[in-house]
């Protein structure tokens, strides 16, 4: 089977399994295109990812490999063990999401760019956890976001959202 190499924007290479690569829909789509153009070539397929740094790519790949392992376990386990397995997966995901806000930002952007739906769900759920109950200014501060609305636009939105701000 052909090796797949994902290349981060700083040039670091990561060899991954086809099964794990298939969880990244962007990579899966690139692989299909490369396979179509190169035919049955057995050279490693190198997929450059200019929008993802090495550190974040490692984290994303850790997720993909672990999820594949869980998927195989779920398929192989009897129904009676599914609830226990679900608890194991949730515990692993909770541990996995113990990241700083900065890491979470890079992770959600990578999950979006690589199109990994399950990771995107996990990241956006974690973002929602950090946003719940906060004012717009507190959310900006939490995520280090630069204000992009003019004072007039901000005031207009504030007025129409007064019901939610109290």
């Amino acid at each position: 089977m052909r090796n797949i190499v994902l290349r981060a924007n700083d040039g670091a290479d990561h060899v991954i399994s086809v099964a794990a690569a298939s969880l990244c829909k962007t990579v899966a789509s690139l692989l299909q295109d490369l396979e179509a153009s190169k035919g049955e070539d057995t050279d490693p397929l190198i997929v450059p990812l200019p929008n993802v740094c090495n550190c974040t790519l490692q984290k994303v790949l850790g997720f993909c490999e672990q999820q594949r392992a869980f998927d195989e376990l779920c398929t192989a386990s009897p129904a009676a063990q599914q609830a226990d397995l679900t608890r194991q997966i949730q515990a692993w995901q909770m541990e996995y999401m113990q990241v700083s806000t900065d890491e979470l930002y890079h992770l959600v952007m990578a999950a979006h760019y690589l199109n990994v739906p399950r990771l995107l769900d996990l990241c956006t759920d974690a973002m929602a956890e950090r946003i719940r109950g906060k004012s717009p200014a507190q959310v900006r501060e939490c995520f280090g976001l630069k204000p992009s609305l003019s004072p007039e636009e901000e005031e207009e939105i504030r007025r129409s959202n007064l019901w939610a701000l109290n």
Partner: peptide
């Protein structure tokens, strides 16, 4: 992100940027 929030929190979020 808003799909994990209540309508009230989603409305607050809409004022972020």
């Amino acid at each position: 992100v808003a799909s994990f929030l209540s309508i009230k929190d989603a409305a607050r979020l809409s004022g972020v940027c």
